[in-house]
Design a protein around this nucleic acid. Structure first.
Lengths: 230, 230
DNA sequence: TTTAATTTTGCCCTTTAGGGCAATTGTTTT
DNA sequence: AAAACAATTGCCCTAAAGGGCAAAATTAAA
């Protein structure tokens, strides 16, 4: 592991390999948190070599501070790799705080800790628990998986947001009718239930389909299910 | 914890509280595996008190032997609660063997073990890892969750099987047409693609819906998605 | 208050969906 | 060989879907 990359050692985030970012495609962003600056440096170097974008923090607090101020809409697969044993806010504490704000996959690492720490970490939803001394292969493999999970979550979230956005453009009637159509009700039946004219139902049905981006009714059924309109 | 329930101590499965089964509703079946027969007895008693059906085994091999010969179609939520440290086949080994055969949730428990064991267990898909000495509340809570997971998995599996069964009754043409209908194609379009008459398409479409138990097209769309026909 | 947007409806016309009735081929199973 | 099932089609008829054209009635915003 070369240590050529420049990075801050005391809490300030640093992106390693920014030049590379423009050249090669980045595989994802890894946030490393450890109070041992040597480990921080080594991990940063290793991750940079593997073409990951990497931010390092010497304490959980330092990360939490920056985290809140980050511009949202960050569509890069990311994960947090955090040491368990740290002063003030330890890894498990960070985990519980992050889980409330974020769904970024978390990898915890620890030295001589016993089973209880590992168990707590997993129960709280940690994706993996790495035991120091770290093995590069195991670490990189864990990062790979975490980023894959992150990418999948982001993909899903984006899709949900997109869908929710489209649903939000529906008027009350359009929404009502889209629901009933997705349930398989016929236009005449809907018209009767809502006490409106058949022509009206057809019109809104058509508009709802347009707004939802559904070419055929089958699409609307799927979108309605996915968007929770059923 | 009373020890009134009878149970075998050396590998033969025993159902504790069979009489109760008929009276109160059983909350699920727990398979306990531990080479320490005292723990076995204590757990059996505790679980029986909580109205769980319980089988005990003094070794993983004993359980594996019986497991293969069990009548399938066992629609009772179940989980396995297994000690990690055992001679011959230990908990982690059992875990990997079971995962190939079964999707029953597994709870592992261990005494003075370190983080590595716990980590291995979770990585291999264990639902939880309980540290001895066992706390009754923690244990029962873990069992509760495991059985909930089991129930959900069984529900899903049953649903899949049921759906697969219905799909299996479709003839080739019916299946083909069901697919295209689920994609939103119109009957005339399908007729043209398959080079058959419109009337034929209508007939098979109708039959496919009947066989699949779909009253309206929207239902067929959902069933097709769920059954992987899309 | 006047404009803009939403909600609503009627008339009319074409295409699809749904389905009854009757019948013709191959294939498979008993 | 006869029965049963799969695949097919034609004719005909009703109901539902999709949509153009024109226009009230309401409501919210400028």
């Amino acid at each position: 592991m070369s240590k050529g990359a420049a990075h801050s050692l005391y809490g300030n985030p640093v992106t390693v390999g920014e030049v590379k970012v423009a050249k090669r495609s980045i595989r994802g962003r890894v946030v490393v948190i450890d109070d041992d600056v040597e480990i921080l440096a080594a991990l940063a170097a290793l991750l940079a070599l593997e073409n990951y974008s990497c931010e390092t923090y010497a304490s959980a607090l330092a990360y939490l501070e920056v985290h809140g101020k980050q511009y949202p809409g960050n569509f890069v697969p990311s994960c947090v790799l955090c040491d368990v044993k740290m002063p003030e806010v330890d890894g498990l504490e960070l985990q519980s705080r992050l889980s409330a704000l974020d769904d970024t996959p978390l990898l915890l690492m620890s030295g001589v800790s016993g089973a209880p720490e590992a168990v707590s970490a997993f129960r709280a939803g940690a994706l993996d628990f790495l035991i120091k001394p770290l093995d590069a292969d195991i670490l990189l493999n864990a990062v790979l998986k975490a980023l894959a999970v992150s990418a999948e979550r982001q993909r899903l979230k984006e899709r949900k947001l997109n869908l929710a956005g489209r649903i939000a453009t529906l008027t009350k009637r359009e929404l009502e009718i889209a629901r009933k159509v997705a349930l398989g009700q016929t236009n005449p039946s809907i018209a009767q239930e809502l006490g409106i004219a058949l022509r009206t139902v057809k019109l809104y049905r058509q508009r709802a389909m347009e707004k939802m981006g559904a070419k055929v009714t089958a699409d609307l059924v799927r979108l309605a299910d996915e968007g929770g309109l059923s």
